[in-house]
């Protein structure tokens, strides 16, 4: 019997409180049949990685609008490595400058979805990667 579900952790690291985007994504993923663990505002990379491991998710979704991604991305990647959990993929959204995207993908961010991305695109991406 195959009852496996795609599980995604949606986190909002950094100090700004703009979580509308994260909530919209959470809701869209739910409506596509995924199980979304929503952890709320101001999570540290340590909190996020620990939660992702306990919840055994396929993806971590990071929403960052404050520019803190330059610190948070490398730290989350590092912590996943330390915990032998590199199979958990990272996707990100929010305000990430276009010219930086290749750099982040190279060090281990799986995909970056900027403003204007449709939720459908994100859902399709996740479904494709899990298969």
């Amino acid at each position: 019997m195959d009852k496996a579900k795609i599980r995604v952790l949606i986190a909002k690291p950094g100090l700004d409180g703009h979580d509308r985007g994260a909530k919209v994504i959470a809701r869209a993923l739910r409506d596509s049949g995924m199980e979304v663990i929503y952890t709320g505002l101001r999570q540290s990379p340590e909190d996020i990685v620990e939660a992702a491991i306990q919840e055994d998710v396929h993806f971590i979704g990071l929403s960052i609008l404050s520019g803190a991604h330059t610190h948070i991305f490398p730290r989350v990647i590092e912590l996943l490595k330390e915990n032998n959990a590199e199979d958990i993929k990272i996707i990100a959204g929010g305000i990430i400058p276009n010219q930086e995207i290749p750099k982040w993908k190279e060090i281990g961010i799986d995909a970056i979805f900027g403003p204007g991305t449709s939720t459908k695109e994100i859902i399709e991406y996740i479904n494709r990667s899990v298969k």
Partner: peptide
Amino acid sequence: SGGAVLGDRLRMNSAQKSGIFIRS
């Protein structure tokens, strides 16, 4: 949809900070 938003962790701040194993 068969999906779910699991938000109990949101209210479990001190448990989260102290490394308690929480599963939604």
